[in-house]
C-alpha cells in the first residue's frame, strides 16, 4: 500500500509536529525535567549550592522536624480553609445578588473584580496600612468615640494569619463571583419559572434548585482557589513578611527562605516537592475529569 508521496506533501504532513515540538521540548524540560531535578536536590545534601549526592529522605526528615515547617503547614491549613469558605461563600452571594436584574450590575461587577488586577504586593502594601493599629482602622474607630476598640491582629502572632485571610479574600472574591455568575447565566431560565409557578419562594428556589446546578462552577472555583492558596507567597511577604516572628510562615515562604536565605537548599527542595504533591493531588484529577468530560461531550 505504500506509495511514494510527493516531497512537498510530506513536509506539509510533518510541519504541525515540527511546529509543536519546541514548545513540547521546552515544557518537558522547564516543567517535568525541572521537577525531577528539584526532586533530586531534595534527596541530596545540598546546602548553599546544589550537590548531587544521595542522602535518601534525610532532607524530608529534617523538614518535618523543623518547627517552622509545622507552623507553615498549620497556617496553610487554617488559611486555605477560611480563604476557601469565605471566598466561595461571598462570591456566590455576590453572584446571586447580581443576578437579580440589578440596574448598575456592570459597575458593581467591575468594583468587585478590580482587586484581581492588582499585584499581591500592592494588595499587601495597602492592607498593611489599613490594618496598622496605630493609624489604620483601629484608630478610626477609636477616634469615633469607641476608645476601647482594639483591632491589632496584624501585630498578634495568633491572629496575624487572619489578616492574610482578609486581604486574600478581598482580592479573590471577584474571581469566584465571575465564575458563579457565568454559571448562573448558563442555567435555563425556564427551570426557575417552573419552580415559581409551583409557588416556591426565591431563596428556596436558589437553595434547592439553582445552587445544586452550579456544581461544575463550584468545582472550578474550589480547585482554582486551592491552587491560589497553596502558592500564595507575595501577599504574605508584603503584608506580614511572615511575621510577627514566624507566625505567618507558609510553605511557599518557607521554601523561599530556606533556599535563598538560610542556605538549606535540600530542605527547601523537599518543601517544594511537598507543595508540588499537594497541588498535583488536587489538580491532576480535576484536569483529568474536565478533559474527559469535554471529550465525551463531542
Amino acid at each position: 500500500m505504500s506509495r511514494s508521496t510527493p516531497l512537498s506533501n510530506r513536509i506539509e504532513n510533518w510541519l504541525p509536529r515540527l511546529v509543536l515540538a519546541p514548545s513540547l521540548l521546552v515544557v518537558l524540560v522547564a516543567v517535568y525535567l525541572f521537577i525531577c531535578w528539584t526532586g533530586w536536590i531534595s534527596l541530596s545534601s545540598s546546602m548553599i549550592v546544589p550537590k548531587y549526592d544521595f542522602v535518601g529522605l534525610n532532607q524530608y526528615v529534617r523538614l518535618w522536624s523543623t518547627p517552622r515547617w509545622h507552623t507553615a503547614v498549620f497556617n496553610l491549613f487554617v488559611f486555605s480553609t477560611l480563604f476557601l469558605a469565605l471566598t466561595t461563600g461571598l462570591g456566590l452571594l455576590m453572584a446571586i445578588l447580581l443576578d437579580q436584574k440589578i440596574r448598575v450590575e456592570g459597575t458593581l461587577r467591575a468594583i468587585f473584580l478590580y482587586p484581581m488586577a492588582l499585584s499581591f504586593i500592592v494588595t499587601g502594601t495597602a492592607w498593611k496600612w489599613i490594618l496598622n493599629p496605630a493609624l489604620g482602622v483601629q484608630k478610626v474607630v477609636n477616634d469615633l468615640g469607641w476608645t476601647s476598640f482594639v483591632f491589632d491582629w496584624i501585630a498578634q502572632p495568633t491572629f496575624a494569619i487572619y489578616c492574610v485571610v482578609i486581604a486574600a479574600v478581598w482580592q479573590s472574591t471577584g474571581f469566584a463571583m465571575a465564575i458563579f455568575l457565568a454559571g448562573l447565566r448558563g442555567i435555563d431560565n425556564s427551570v426557575i419559572k417552573a419552580a415559581q409557578i409551583e409557588g416556591a419562594s426565591l431563596p428556596r428556589i436558589y437553595r434547592t434548585i439553582v445552587v445544586p446546578m452550579l456544581r461544575p462552577a463550584f468545582l472550578s472555583v474550589i480547585v482554582l482557589l486551592s491552587y491560589i492558596a497553596i502558592k500564595s507567597f507575595d501577599l504574605i511577604l508584603a503584608l506580614t513578611n511572615t511575621g510577627p516572628g514566624s507566625a505567618t510562615e507558609m510553605p511557599s515562604t518557607f521554601m523561599y527562605s530556606a533556599t535563598f536565605r538560610r542556605d538549606q537548599m535540600g530542605v527547601g527542595a523537599a518543601s517544594a516537592m511537598m507543595m508540588l504533591m499537594t497541588v498535583a493531588a488536587i489538580i491532576v484529577p480535576y484536569l483529568y475529569s474536565e478533559l474527559k468530560e469535554s471529550r465525551d461531550g463531542h
Binding site: V27, W37, T38, P50, K231, S252, M275, V279
Partner: peptide, 12 residues
C-alpha cells in the same frame, strides 16, 4: 503547566 507551583522549578 498552568497549575505548576513555581517553587518546584525555581532551583533548577
Amino acid at each position: 503547566g498552568c497549575f505548576l507551583p513555581f517553587q518546584a522549578v525555581i532551583l533548577p
